[in-house]
Nucleic acid binder design. Sequence first.
DNA 1: TCAAATTTTACCCAAATGGGCGATTGACGC
DNA 2: GCGTCAATCGCCCATTTGGGTAAAATTTGA
Lengths: 209, 209
Amino acid sequence: MKEEIRVAIVEDDAEIRQLFGLLLDNSPGYQCVAQYADAESALDQLEVAEVDVVLMDIDLPGVSGIQCTEKLKQESPELNIIMLTVHEDDAALFDSLCAGATGYILKETSPVQILEDIRTAHQGGSPMSSAIARRVIQTFHQPQKASPLSERETEVLTYLVEGQNYRTIAEALFVSPNTIKAHIKNIYRKLEVSTRAEAVSKAHKDRLI
Amino acid sequence: MKEEIRVAIVEDDAEIRQLFGLLLDNSPGYQCVAQYADAESALDQLEVAEVDVVLMDIDLPGVSGIQCTEKLKQESPELNIIMLTVHEDDAALFDSLCAGATGYILKETSPVQILEDIRTAHQGGSPMSSAIARRVIQTFHQPQKASPLSERETEVLTYLVEGQNYRTIAEALFVSPNTIKAHIKNIYRKLEVSTRAEAVSKAHKDRLI
DNA sequence: TCAAATTTTACCCAAATGGGCGATTGACGC
DNA sequence: GCGTCAATCGCCCATTTGGGTAAAATTTGA
């Protein structure tokens, strides 16, 4: 026999909060163990050991749902937090994910679907609409703008990133330090920088390494 | 009236390929416009203008499905490519997403669900199981290990990342260049590095900036 | 086959960097 | 009150770096 999923709600709108509470308590397999009207109360009173899944409103007065998520996850990394939002906002989405949210769903989601999403989160999945999933996976797709560097220059760049100097790079590549110096000059010209630190920054930013 | 979704299949197993083809052609709203047994044929013959969604096997002989995806997306960034795989493999998943895959589903997915997933992809969503979604969103959650740097040091570090020297950083912060030098020495000690390039690398790696 | 780009090497020199040592002030905690 | 740390500043010195200029061998593409 499955344990009931213990759910906590953090939501400032009393009506919505109570609605969700009723929904949960009247659904077999679910139990609403706590309701909070703001992030401060949740951070104060929520016992992470007694909760499986948190439904977290993003737009809370005072401390935001995102900050609350970040703090709760610091206390208990295993806690599953599902963000609730009314509007699809890219910044809020990614800030939520970085804060440690497990799922991201719209408030207009149907009650049945929300119960399903809570179960998904509890069982190790991440509930989100396929439209939101698309926005998430698009962040991975970065068509690499053809690197302006030659193969050898890219190789030298990897040693620059490691903080090596002319001499040690030269030894690693079995060439003269003067050669490395020439390569680095060319790298600087092509990346439009003039110091190692800048080159390393640009290398990271443009995914040249 | 909706247009039919034009689907192409890239899959080396003839049986599976034909099975999917039959499934599509016998489902209203779907049309299998092409089948390829390997990536090379697909890259040669596939007309991106005539295809809405590609079902791409990951494990192809010769050129992999991931490489094929990368090339197809270069030709046509709007093309929706759904990866098919038998085993859940983290590296393959993220390589696929970086290559530009729209979705990622297991071959054992039911025919009805696959049709649904194709429609999802075509309508701007990203089909994937909630377990896979969890693996994806977990990459965003990096609990920032408390930075070892003081506030001032972090500030100096941001200038280092920009490639600035002692003098200009000093001017920006209205202190002596010697002070900046002292800060940088402390940064080096705390990050266990000894050059600007290394410090910048570490700053990026550990998300200190 | 000829031009362009890449890879290789060299030298000079001013400026920047990194390491070592020391010092003062103020804030915070115990 | 005392120790710790952060932030501030100073000096010395060897090493490294970056910019300028030049040139040869090799590869690649047109």
